[in-house]
Design a protein around this nucleic acid. Structure first.
Lengths: 335, 335
DNA sequence: CCGTATCAATGAATCGATTCAAAGGAATTG
DNA sequence: CAATTCCTTTGAATCGATTCATTGATACGG
C-alpha cells in the first residue's frame, strides 16, 4: 500500500505531474478549470505532499535543530516554546535535542541534525565542541549559540548579561536605603553565580558606606537556602544584613521559608529580599518575591531570528545579542 | 557550493556509488581494503550522509512527532524529555509541536508532520480531531494518544488513572484516622478534577462515618488555594476538616501558605494535607507536601514504545496502557 | 490571413542514497 | 583444465516533487 503520489493525482486528473506541482506551488500559473480538477483529485485521493522529496529537490529542509542542556528546566522549556513559535511563523518546525549536559549526546545530536540537513542549529553547548561546530558551519549549516557567551565571534549568539542582573538587583536594594548587603552564592563554578556576584560588587562599590557580605550556599536549591536562612535568624540583630540578594529564586524562597516560619524577622521591613530568574513561584510565595527576570521567550525568538538572518544573507556577519535582565519588584522589597 | 555527495566520494575513492553505500550500511559486504579507501575519502572530503535522500528512498523518516498542550508545563516537558530519550535509543529524533490548547495549531502540526512523513505522532489532543487522526492513520502514520482516555480503542494510548489517584490520596487520609475529608476542587470541566473527586468519593464511601466536603476553588493556582485556606482558617474549629485533599499541588501549597502564615492551624496535626502531581516544589515546601505522583517519564517512554510496537507489526491491535499514580508520603500527613 | 505575443500544459532531468540483478574475478573441486 | 562456488563490485533503476525548456493553443494587430 504505497502512499498516493503526485503521479497518481496527475493521472487521476488527466494532467501532467508538472501541472499538479504548479497547482501546489504556483496556483495562478494554472488555469482555474484545470486547477479545480486537480484540487478535486487531491481531495478525492487524500493526497498529502511528501515533504521529504520536496526537501531533497530543494536541498533544504524546513526544520531547525535545537539542542538544550535540560528541557526539564523551565528556562529551557520556555525558550523552546518561544523558538518553536517563532519557527512556526516562518513555516518551520523545531527538532528537539536534549543533551542533558552530556557531551556525547550533544555530539550525537549534531550528527543527526547535520544528516537531516536542518537549516540551522540552535545550541546551548555543554562540551568543548568549537571544532565540531566550525565543521558544521563550514558545510553550510548555520549555528546560533544560545545562553552562552559569544566566544570568538565566529557564530551568532544570544545571551543574558548576568553581571548587569546582579548590579540591578543590588542597586535596587541600595536605592531602598539598605547598606548592609549580603549575596547568597551558589557553587562558584557556575559562571552565572560568578557574574551575578561581580555585578553586586560593582553596585556596592558605587555607594559610600555600603558593605557586601558573601554567604556561601552549598547548592542552588530551596533546602540550601533554608539553611542559610537558619543561620541568619540565629544571628545578633546588629550583625544582620538589611538587604539580601540570592543567586537564584530557589535560594531566596528557602531563606524566606525559614525566616517567616520562625517569625523573628520581617520581610521586607527587617531584611529586603531579591531573587533571580523570576520563576513562577516567585510571584506566589508567602511574601511575593522581587526577582530578576530573564527574557527566556525573547531569547528563544531571537535565536530563531538570528538564524533567519544568516539564512537570508549567508554573507552576513554573525551577530551577538546580549539581553539585559529586568527587575521585577514585588512585596519582598516593597517596604 | 554543493555539499559533497556519495558520488563525489565514489569518484574520489575510485569505486562505484553502490560500494560507498555498502560501506555505510553493510560494511562487511565490502573487502577490507576497499572499505579503508572509501572511509579515507569520506574523512578527507568531510562527507556527511544526506538523510533526506535516504528517507525518500526508504519511504520512512527517522523522526517521531510529538504534539503537547503546553511544553512550559512541567508535566509535558518531563514527558517530552522521556519520549526524546526513548526515541534516541531507537536512533530516532523527536519533532516537537506545541499546540498551546489551540485546535488550529494542533491541526497545523498534524499536517506538517504528515507531510514530513514522520513514523508516528504522539499527541495529547486538545480539539475534536478524531477524524483527522483517523485519516492520518488510514494513510499509514501511526498515532498514539498521550494523557488522554483511550476513546474508541482505535489508537494506542497512554494515560493515568486519576480516579485511582483520588482514591489513593483519600484512602491515605482515612487510614490516618481522619474522618472529615474535604476536597479542594478546581474548575469541573477538567476531566482530571472530576475523576480525582470521583476517586475521593469512592474512598469515603467505603468507611463508615467518614464525610466528604467539596470546596470549590476558582482556579488551579496557588492564589486560589490561598483563598480557600483563608476561608478554612476563619472557621470554627468544630467545622474544620481534619483531612484535606487538593486537586493539585498548587492549590495545596496555597492552602499551606495561608494556614502556616496565620499560625492557627498546624499541619499535619490539626489538618493533614495531600496534593496532586508531585511537582518539584512539593518536596521543598515549608511543610513537605504529601502528593500523588504521575509517572511522567514512564508515560513518555511508553508512548514511544507503543509506537514502536505498531511500527514493527502494523497488524498489531492498538493497546491502551493506564498507569496508576503513586502516593508519596511526606511531612504534611506524617502525624 | 499571417506573424507574433501570451498563456497553459507538458514531461524529461534532477536532487542523493539505496537496491539488486548482473558481471567479474578468485578459489576450489573433480 | 573445465566447472562450480563464493566473494566483490558495478551501475542502472528507483523513491516523489520540482524545474524549465519546449510545445501547443489562443488571441490580437496589421
Amino acid at each position: 500500500m504505497r502512499a498516493t503520489s503526485i503521479k497518481d493525482v496527475a493521472s487521476h486528473a488527466g494532467v501532467a505531474v508538472g501541472t499538479v506541482s504548479n497547482v501546489l506551488n504556483y496556483p495562478d500559473r494554472v488555469a482555474a478549470k484545470t486547477r479545480g480538477r486537480v484540487l478535486n483529485s487531491i481531495a478525492e485521493l487524500g493526497f498529502v505532499r511528501n515533504d521529504v522529496a520536496r526537501q531533497l529537490r530543494a536541498g533544504q529542509s524546513r526544520s531547525i535543530g535545537l539542542i538544550v542542556l535540560d528541557i526539564g528546566n523551565p528556562f529551557f522549556s520556555s525558550l523552546a516554546r518561544a523558538a518553536e513559535d517563532a519557527a512556526a511563523e516562518g513555516g518551520n518546525a523545531v527538532v528537539l535535542g536534549n543533551s542533558g549536559h552530556d557531551p556525547q549526546r550533544e555530539l550525537h545530536y549534531i550528527d543527526l541534525f547535520e544528516e537531516q540537513r536542518v537549516q540551522g542549529v540552535l545550541i546551548s553547548p555543554t562540551g568543548d565542541i568549537g571544532k565540531r561546530l566550525a565543521a558544521l558551519a563550514g558545510r553550510g549549516t548555520k549555528v546560533v549559540l544560545v545562553d552562552s557567551p559569544a566566544g570568538t565571534g565566529e557564530f551568532s549568539s544570544v545571551s543574558v548579561d548576568d553581571t548587569s542582573g546582579g548590579y540591578l538587583a543590588t542597586k535596587h536594594l541600595l536605592d531602598l536605603g539598605r547598606r548592609h548587603i549580603a549575596f547568597v552564592a551558589g557553587p562558584q563554578h557556575f559562571h552565572q553565580v560568578r557574574d551575578r556576584l561581580a555585578g553586586a560588587a560593582q553596585a556596592v562599590a558605587e555607594v559610600a558606606g555600603a558593605t557586601l557580605e558573601v554567604l556561601q550556599a552549598g547548592d542552588l536549591t530551596v533546602l540550601a537556602g533554608r539553611s542559610v536562612g537558619d543561620e541568619l535568624v540565629s544571628r545578633d540583630r546588629a550583625a544582620l544584613p538589611d538587604g539580601l540578594f540570592c543567586a537564584n529564586d530557589l535560594l531566596a524562597l528557602g531563606v524566606m521559608q525559614s525566616v517567616t516560619m520562625l517569625h523573628t524577622l520581617r520581610i521586607p521591613k527587617d531584611m529586603a529580599l531579591v531573587g533571580y530568574d523570576d520563576i513562577d513561584f516567585a510571584a506566589s510565595a508567602v511574601v511575593a518575591l522581587t526577582s530578576i527576570r530573564q527574557p527566556t521567550a525573547l531569547i528563544g525568538r531571537t535565536a530563531v531570528e538570528l538564524l533567519a538572518e544568516q539564512l537570508e544573507d549567508p554573507e552576513a556577519k554573525p551577530r551577538s545579542v546580549v539581553f539585559r535582565p529586568e527587575l521585577v519588584v514585588r512585596a519582598s522589597t516593597a517596604g
